[in-house]
Amino acid sequence: MVDTVLFIICAIVAIVCGFNVVLQRHPISSALSLIGVMSSLAVLYLLLGAEFIAMAQMIVYGGAVMVLFTFVIMLLNAGTEKASSKSWFAQIAGLPLLLAFVGVLAFLIRAVLPPLAAVAFGSWVGGTAEHIGQLLFTTYLLPFEVISVLILIAILGAVALAQKEID
């Protein structure tokens, strides 16, 4: 009962905030809406029994990535957009393709996939940090190490791209 209500509330919040991301004029409003989406998604993760992922979502996305976005928006003083006549193909074909996309996927989910379980909060408790740690450091050890190298490269790239020119 409670999880159903919670799901509906969080879903509505996520969708509304999602629309907001797309429809707002100023980027800062879009960024804040995105934070709303991420928060509601975190709750949904909790409902699905993914404790670690929910926490990681809040910390990494909400706490780091979105803060970074906000910093950059402030730094660039990005204003509202102007209309453009280029990319006519995107403007014309984009909506129909999107609708078709949603339609096909919805159909696939409802009709083609095998019967799915119902989600009951607490019916599965295998998403703890312990479980993730066990899998992460045994089966997925190599991707884990590679990911760390990736982060290093990203740091170096970001520093190299954004630093001042040496004159």
């Binding site: 999880d3 159903t4 999602g18 797309v22 949904l44 990005a78 984009g94 989910i109 799915l116 989600v119």
Partner: peptide, 28 residues
Amino acid sequence: GHVPLSWYLILSVILFALGVAGFVYRKS
């Protein structure tokens, strides 16, 4: 009743479509 999993998936599809719409239609 409990929440069917397909609702979660459809929510995921909607959010993804919104993301694509933003990518295709926004200019900033």
